[in-house]
Design a protein around this nucleic acid. Sequence first.
DNA 1: GCCAACGTTGGC
DNA 2: GCCAACGTTGGC
Length: 191
Amino acid sequence: MTPKQRAGEPTPAKKAPKSMPYEQGAWAHVFAPRAAGEIRYWLIKSEPDVFSYEDLEKAPKKTTCWDSVRNSSARNFMRDGMKKGDLAFYYHSNADPSAIVGICEIVREGYPDPTSWDPSHDYFDPKSDPDMPTWYMVDVKAVKAFRTPVPLQQVKDDPALAEMALVKVGRLSVVPVTPDEWAHVCALGGV
DNA sequence: GCCAACGTTGGC
DNA sequence: GCCAACGTTGGC
């Protein structure tokens, strides 16, 4: 399934839904067709106590599957937005301080998350069926740690980053990053 | 630990 | 379809 394509602006006659999924509103463009060779940018969050950027660097092939995401907007970004070769910031949430700490690459595109139909798993979802999976994941590989982590406060204080989805939408664990934001944050991080 | 900002659920 | 109750994320 692909996300509904939104041709142009919402019809004025139709009242906008109370809560429009992010992927159909301001960030619909991240699902649009790409120019040849175009790379898109993302940000993924993980609590360092659970799985840190260092853990990713130490993992076999520096790669892991990004499983257990149980939010439909985050799922759609992974399933329908991310393509192999895309890059993502690695963000430590619930950390001291919470910060963007490194870069990883999408090395496998969206595929069903088997933890969702494993009854012994913490994030088991009885409504997810292997024949019609509800939840998807991607594989990510560590590329480069920031020389200087960029704390959330620094992002919030920087006018160039005021529109980052990270600050505009607090609780979403997978969000898009614009090319300008990407370049700016990379410079701050010393990479 | 508190709570704001959501998303989801379920009664009606 | 509405909306109140509840659950989750994650900053502080």
